[in-house]
Design a protein around this nucleic acid. Sequence first.
DNA 1: TTCTATAGCGAGAAA
DNA 2: CGCTATAGAA
Length: 709
Amino acid sequence: MTSSIFSDLNDKQREAVFSPDGPVLVLAGAGSGKTRVIAYRIGYLLKEKNVSPYSILAVTFTNKASTEMKERVLKLLGKDRMPFLWIGTFHSICARILREDIEKLNLKINRHFTIFDKEDSKSVIKKILKDEKLGENSFGISEISDYFSLIKRGAARSFPSNISSLYSLYEKSLVEQNALDFDDLLLFTVKLLREVESIRVKYQQRFQHILVDEYQDTNDVQEELLTILAEKWKNLFLVGDEDQSIYGFRGSKVRHIVEFPEKYSNAKIIRLEKNYRSFDTILSSASALVSHNKERLGKTLWTDKKGGEKIKFFSGESDRDEANFVADEVLKLSSTYPHNKIAILMRTNSQSRGLEETFLNKGIPYQIVGGIKFYERKEVKDIISYLRLAINPYDRISLLRVINTPPRGIGKTTIEAIEKVSLEKNITLYEAIVAGVNKNLFSQKSSQSLKDFMKLIKDLQFEVTSSKPSEATANLIEKIGYINHLESQSDLKKESRVENIKELVSAIKEFEVREGGNLEMFLERQSLSSDQDELDEEAADSVKVMTIHSAKGLEFPVVFIVGLEDGFFPHEKSKMKAEEVEEERRLLYVGMTRAMERLYFTNSKTRYIYGNVVIRDPSPFLSEIPFKNIEEIKIANEKADFLKLNYTFEKHESNDNFLRPGIRVYHKNYGVGIVLSSEGSGESLKVTVSFSKFGRKKLLAKMANLEVM
DNA sequence: TTCTATAGCGAGAAA
DNA sequence: CGCTATAGAA
């Protein structure tokens, strides 16, 4: 019935790929070939069902995944029919729709809108707090920003009324700046489709087939978008795995998967349970772990790859000890596994610092993936802000960022004067600058600087349309003397900052050569780029260091999961809610299932946190993994006993009675507290202290330098 | 206006 | 411990 290109699929995969029209839900376990299933489904639709590429929409989770998907389909089909196929992330698809039609919403936002990232959004909020003189607000800026995101996702239960008044100011500010934040991209697209019939009909007609990867990480707004788009044809092909849902904090809901069959009564459901990635030891350990979750549909993954090595577990005395073990093990492995086959996965970005130091010391090349992204670096963002400004002159955040960077004599006083004029006359900052200069509202010196700055931006605006973006950017950097500016700083990182600036110009150049894109397209790509887009797979032979979130969808022959401690797995901030603990468990599951051949677990008994040594207990999740699958690694005369460590935890009466319960003590960072209990003795004496300002802490007496008061 | 020193605060994950 | 906001000097 079908051509041979589909012959390398298993029965279940074929069933999915060849499904008749209508809603299809593919419950695809880790490593079960789901990306391939989507690619082949597209191939099948195009080749066997003669569906036009113009009628297909495929949604992936990252840009990297969409590039890979395009390549796979390309291999199946050849080049000529590709240009019409829409493949992208939710955000990039929405941006594309909005760039075409947002003006139909009559919101005073035009198609040249800027996409604000989290940092930009926070700058807007900071500005509002300052203008409204709400500096003493009891909420942090991040907290407010998160509230706003909740509101936009329709998920804010209740929030303080003083915040709700800020929200409308925030919204107003974005509109005035012709800017959208990440949530707006989704929200405005839904709004556009809902409210403007002609556009809704246009896309509903067009997208006869919609395919979605990583469906378990879809939030309510994305779900609604899919519902609207698929309304006419109802050909939704969704692929997901509830056990890998790890973006609850971004609003994703496992519920969407569970409720899909109720929503579409004729939905076809297919399970892909054969895992092609990992050895059985790894797979069954991961399955055992996740089986402790209540909120799941349940799957039974299996593999042909029987056996395999046990998971190696190392427990260090300190975080440095842990990092040394990882580094030494990487070196030992290097005869069998090149560095780029190895990934170090962490719960939080801050854990990378210690690893970096150790790798640097031992001369192990590494690449940090994610964390502070290339485009989020201060110096890169400075230049990006100039470029944004050239495209969208209403973008105040960018204007304020660059108006005196590098310093050109436009200080705080002048900027405040400009803002005052802008506010009073209800005009843009530019108009305010012009008006102020004309009316001699600023000092002679400031006036001249402002005139020069205005000319600089005008020239740039012209240049980005008349010459190549990379050339315009290089010219700009030259003109403002940005390299000199960086080099004149007493900054330890100045060399890498200069490098980053050069890399930015190269990135723009590459974009214009490879994709023929203009500056506006580059900026959009840039603002929607994801962690994984920075992953440099083959180029450098380097160990990849990243969070588990960033590792989603990837696989590596060797995986180290570090910091398996209570407080990281589950994270301190998730411990209180059962559903969040389940998500933490899924997170570890995702981490484990990235491993193909070898898996390492490491943790440490003590760790520096804010520069203080803190005692750490092993992750409770460790005890949910079959003991027979774990091999404990001891080094030299270490006597860390896995069983004792995880299941009993010995308690001793204290013989160091100067720190006995009830004693008042002083700690240099935590202040005054009262000793509640102690365990161990001598070198390993640990005391639990209740600090009046910081709550209960367990400290290693040797390191804590407690003073008895 | 700009530069520098330091106090004070803080890091959960990310398009 | 590391970053950043801010105060104070130049």
